[in-house]
Design a protein around this nucleic acid. Structure first.
Lengths: 113, 113
DNA sequence: ATTGATGTACCAGAACTATCGAACAATGGG
DNA sequence: CCCATTGTTCGATAGTTCTGGTACATCAAT
């Protein structure tokens, strides 16, 4: 069972969140997770190398933007929507709205329900 | 008379704006300019080296966040509020609102939370 | 023309970032 | 126990960012 560092929501700071979302790849990941569901790194990864994906998910996680839950050999990633809504009300919705409009979709993440 | 590059507002892209604002110094600059008035690099600079200030203003300018007007020996910087409002309605207000709340004020007095 | 004020250009160094491949660890299924 | 799946860690590389110093350009005023 893996251990991941997640900052407390009150320790999440604005520049870190903005930085995490200032990369097209990570913005695409956030857009892919905007529905609130969990997805594994593999589902989000597209054609990126696994280690690159690990890196981007780590940046998002350490900025406080997403949470990882380990189960078996997989790790399920989801946005910390409610917590961020409390910390920065409306910010994520607002940002991801523009991101969708501008076409930042996850590298490959087909919505496979 | 100096010449500055300013991107067309339709070429301004979200990750660049987020990146420009993902640095505490630049976020402070943006907050200082949030009233819509113009300020010179010197007024914004605080204790930073002039060349460092030039760098940060350039990042903000090239991201499309601010406009520079040269007059005499001075350069007057102001946020592109109306244009950004058209491009990303509400984004800047929203972001700068949180930035103020979190204490990102002009380059000098920074007591982040 | 000289001086002072303001800001830029360019350089350098340290730190950081994005990307990938290879090796490794953890888990679950035969 | 062996093996495939999943993801992390490590090392490497190339590029970027932040900071400041020095030199330079521009302009105003004397």
């Amino acid at each position: 069972m893996r251990h991941y560092f997640h900052p407390e929501i009150e320790d999440v700071c604005l520049p870190d969140v903005l930085f995490a979302l200032s990369d097209a790849t990570r913005l695409g990941i956030a857009v892919a997770l905007a529905d609130g569901k969990e997805r594994t790194a593999g589902e989000l990864g597209g054609s990126l190398a696994k280690s690159t994906m690990t890196h981007h998910l780590k940046v998002l996680r350490e900025a406080g933007a997403l949470r990882v839950r380990s189960e078996g050999t997989r790790c399920y990633n989801s946005l910390r929507l409610e917590e961020l809504q409390e910390r920065f009300p409306g910010l994520l919705d607002h940002l991801l709205g523009f991101a969708v409009k501008c076409g930042y979709t996850s590298a490959d993440a087909r919505s496979r329900d």
